[in-house]
Design a protein around this nucleic acid. Sequence first.
RNA 1: GCUGGAGUGGCGGAAUUGGUAGACGCACCAGACUCAAAAUCUGGCGCUCCAAAAGAGCGUGGGGGUUCGACUCCCCCCUCCAGCACCA
Length: 838
Amino acid sequence: MTTTSTGTSTGSYDHATIEEKWRQKWKRQGSKPASPDPSRPKYYVLEMLPYPSGRLHMGHIRNYSIGDALARYKRMKGFNVLHPMGWDSYGLPAENAAIKNNIHPRQWTRDNIAYMKGQFERFGFSYDWTKELSTCEPEYYRWNQWIFLKMLERGLAYRKNSKVNWCPECATVLANEQVVNDCCWRHETTLVEQKELEQWFFRITEYADALLQDMEKLTIWPDRVLAMQRNWIGKSVGARIDFQVDGLAESITVFTTRVDTIYGATAVILAPEHPLVEKLTTGVPGAGSIQAQVEQMKAARSTAAAGETEKLGIYLGRFAVNPFTEEPVPIWVSNFVLMGYGTGAIMTVPAHDERDFEFATKYRLPIKPVVQPPDVPINVPIKPQRLEQAYTGYGTLSDSGPFSGLTSEEALGKMTGYAVEKGFGQLETTYRLKDWGISRQRYWGTPIPVIYCSTCGVVPVPYDQLPVLLPENVQITGQGQSPLRADPEFLNTTCPKCNGPAERETDTMDTFVDSSWYFYRYTDPTETSAPVNSEAVNYWFPIDQYIGGIEHAILHLIYSRFFAKVLRDLGLSKVDEPAVRLFTQGMVIKDGAKMSKSKGNLVDPNDMVAHYGSDTTRMYVLFAAPPEKDLEWNAAGVEGIYRFVGRVFRFLSKHAAALQGVPAPGTADASLSEDDRKVLRKLHQTIRRITADFEGRWHFNTDIAALMELTNMLYSVEGKVSPPMLREVLEGMSKLLSPFAPYLAHHLWQELGHEEDLMEVEWPGFDPLLAKEEEREIPVQINGRLRSKILVCEDLPAEDLQDAALADARIVQMLAGQQVVKIIVIPNKLVNIVVGRS
RNA sequence: GCUGGAGUGGCGGAAUUGGUAGACGCACCAGACUCAAAAUCUGGCGCUCCAAAAGAGCGUGGGGGUUCGACUCCCCCCUCCAGCACCA
């Protein structure tokens, strides 16, 4: 299908020659560095930076084709555009490659970057490479350390011993966000274990409310991303209530969002891991057996896979006193109560909670309704024995002492207030979001800049000793302990405070730290005195458009929002949110599954480029589906785009020489032939359509369809259009094509005799008068059914349109003997004649 | 279960405030060019009835509703995808 023609202007389409020519030219020119320019509106368009895995995949190409189309459009619209690219270059695959192939991770990473950068260039993506950064280089990661130290000063970084997620496959700790269905996010079938370790955490929970609140500013983020984040943060407002343990000087604090149901509480249930379990069971009859059962429950839970597990209960042999009713309720332990949420203890209200209902039914606990649904009269309480399921909605309180008769909404406030007043409760807001564990027991990451001294304790590395360089010659084992521990030169140091012998922290940071703020650094990656150049950041921020995959909806995008707030509070930036607009593109699917190495359904961008060229590949991924939807790969579809590109090329090749030096056409109606007017109209309609799309919903598939229609029309009027008009339309076409198929567009532009760079040319405007149709086919309906069509001139007034419709021969015939009840006339749209039924 | 999204020809998809459903592309069919093929150019192409044309009927997951008119708005239901999931 590719030819070996020389690529002369009359040959068939030879993408290889054309694209190579422009690639060389662009390479010679180099990137034009974007810099702050207050005289022009700025536009920061950002695509998520890739991990340098070795080569780009189709998902990347889709992501970057969308971003590049936008960047090119905005540039032509006169914006000062920042469009950077870099490398998220720390991470496990480099280490695994090192173990497997005996190559240093840095070497492996740099080789990959060099290769992938070549791919970027081959695709003609218009990045400002002067802003390139790579997170594994000290110029970048030293600022991870700097930010860490600032966070440490502010209590936003802290160390604690805690249960953490451990992936045996990765041999490292994972953040909660990296655990998917109890498995590792990178090893979907490897169950994550719980390990007790000393770890560093970022106090993201400090910003939980801000992260939730500021979502209101993210009005142009996809709903599903906002929903996922809201869900992940999981705020719930409720109360803590203390239940005194009968016969012990202890109380059990439960968390509830439904204090209004507390008169219906018939038990208190603890998580098996609850610290009070041992004390509570000491001295009760059968203590040994009870404790053994609890231990068994704990063990069963830690190995249980995801999914529904049967609710099991163990009665502890003790009672606690409901502070509202002052009646004793039994204390149980159950596997459905989670230690990691709330207080690890709940009150059970079987009548008003489905889980409690199930548990109470199984263990024959009393079910006492205390909230009446709005449609049931208050003086007819639901009989417990007739209760078939819990009523979980709000309603009116009954059997609730002095609170009876209140609505749930009223009761929540009043009863919490009462508990606070009496000293056995307090208002409490809980979050599902947990602090971000950032320690990783791996080599290829940013060293955590902390020193442990036996006399001074935890000592931060002084700022003037940054960066703490990652040593290069280290034995990478993947054995579950940071390889840095085995490097005495790195490990052993002196304490900055007392000068005594000390050890460095040997864990490295989660690589999500790297990608949480890289887009700030892009604005000036050469800054040496701070993580960011504030002047540059203040000019470019916020990001006007961020584009990437939905898979980062929680991980990267929540961490980035957190960092934005931290950097703001450190005075490094002024924005609350990093990106005002987020666009999440759909996945690339083939044979019913997401393209992936493991599924074996990859289409290699390199093969596509070799066969069809960059323009065809880029246009295909934009044409096959609207960008937010999943894209089903279809090899025959690529052929279709290739044909279109060739069609444009051949048309131009045939006419370009004759059009050199031809003057611009007049646009005065009278001077133009019918075909000239027709093709000019189509051009202006196409400009209108594509411009509107860039400003709106980005349905590039329909824009490319519009360009196909324009091309089809060019063929249909070939030989009938005047040379000035042909030139006008082809120039317009070059501009309209340039965001999607830059090589072809530049080629057309040059063939038409232009010296200037098409990228610097102004985006075409459209003239509504020129875009206007002269005639229009109007459907005529009878009782809503299409019966005829009439051809009338554009904007024909309603009365005339009605007359024309009623004069139509077919309509006259069909209306014979009918009673016309009403006629609906919508100018430029339709006529609908309503006739009476007889 | 909760949250978000989707369901339109053989396929990908189009229809921006309710107004000709199926733009554009793929596949398929036919014609031109050719000794022939490929490539290219041109035309056809939702389904059913009819030999065909003319024409008629049906048709946007299903059922109801609002309207002169519904892929589009309202109510109920089904299916699929994604995320979360014993969160008190």
